[in-house]
């Protein structure tokens, strides 16, 4: 009723603003906020507190003492931590490099006009959308030593002369998970880069053509500079998402043999759920979290600089 009378009277700006800003606007965000505080904020704080305590499976329901940075020191003294850190870096760098370059090449290709390209483009996304458990299992089968089809292809092509147990040999296990992760990540990189490419203005290329610039010159001097913001966002998102990959490696190798494919998330999992040293695990995930925060800050810095340009 009151709304109606307000509308029939003079409809002032302040009334309009009031309608948007009155207290019941908060009711729209409240459920989501309450959820996030309980199920995200609280566990995060709990994790932080635990990382400074001595909680393990034996004293879980009892009293816990604060032990300062002891868990962090212990993690930082564990040689496995450094193996995991190194594996994480190798996994992330190799995955991203190939996901990005292959994804970019495919994006350039699918940016050409030919029949069927929309269908192909969507089909590729299917690989990205499959649950990681499924892709991981399929790659495990393809990479198996005796009857794996990858060994068959490589032997037929003459690249290797005897079958390799890709996932059960220390020297190749991490590489095997990287290959599977590259496959999973290519479509995402391709789609994002493709949508960036499609936003580039045609007239620049036409002008360049008139000036006699060949494709390579066009790519270097038009495509790359204009794609810079997209590429930056994609790479940073890629680093964050690849650094925290857990399922794929857990399914394919469980971090083994021994620790040869143990990355930081696997190491944190083993601390928390295998040896049941909860506080120790909490300290590892806090360190991981700090690394991701640093990367994100670098990202924010870079993207704000981008905006200035």
């Amino acid at each position: 009723m009151s709304h109606k009378s307000g509308a029939s009277g003079s409809y002032t700006l302040s009334r309009k603003a009031k309608w948007f800003s009155s207290w019941n606007s908060y009711l729209f965000v409240l459920p989501a906020l309450v959820f996030m505080v309980i199920f995200i904020g609280f566990p995060l704080i709990y994790n932080l507190i635990m990382s400074f305590q001595n909680v393990n499976v034996y004293n879980l329901s009892g009293k816990h003492d604060f032990i300062g940075f002891a868990n962090y020191m212990k993690s930082l003294k564990d040689p496995v931590f450094y193996t995991a850190l190194q594996n994480s870096v190798v996994f992330t760098v190799l995955s991203l490099f190939f996901q990005f370059t292959i994804g970019f090449a495919l994006a350039l290709f699918f940016n050409l006009k030919f029949p069927g390209r929309n269908l192909f483009r969507s089909l590729m996304l299917l690989a990205w959308m499959l649950p990681v458990v499924i892709s991981g299992t399929v790659f495990q089968w393809m990479m198996s030593g005796d009857f794996g089809v990858i060994n068959y292809f490589l032997q037929t092509l003459g690249i290797i002369d005897h079958p390799i147990n890709w996932l059960s040999e220390g020297s190749t296990a991490l590489l095997g998970t990287v290959v599977a992760n590259i496959w999973i990540g290519i479509p995402f990189n391709m789609i994002i880069l493709l949508s960036g490419l499609q936003g580039l203005p045609d007239h620049l290329y036409e002008a360049a053509k008139l000036d006699g610039a060949n494709r390579l010159v066009q790519f270097r001097h038009i495509t790359l500079p204009l794609m810079r913001p997209t590429i930056l966002v994609l790479l940073i998102l890629g680093i964050i998402n690849t650094f925290k990959v857990f399922d794929l490696i857990f399914i394919m190798t469980s971090g083994g043999p021994v620790t040869s494919s143990t990355v930081l998330p696997i190491y944190a999992y083993q601390m928390s759920f295998t040896t049941l040293e909860f506080s120790q695990g909490a300290s590892v995930s806090m360190i991981m979290f700090l690394i991701l925060i640093v990367i994100s800050i670098v990202y924010l810095r870079m993207s704000s600089k981008e905006e200035v340009h």
Partner: peptide, 24 residues
């Protein structure tokens, strides 16, 4: 602030949430 929080939640590693959630 809400938008920044929502964006940064996406960054959290699953394993970091799994352990405190398990205890809770």
């Amino acid at each position: 602030l809400i938008m920044i929080s929502v964006l940064s939640i996406q960054m959290l590693p699953g394993i970091m949430m799994a352990m405190p959630l398990y205890i809770m």
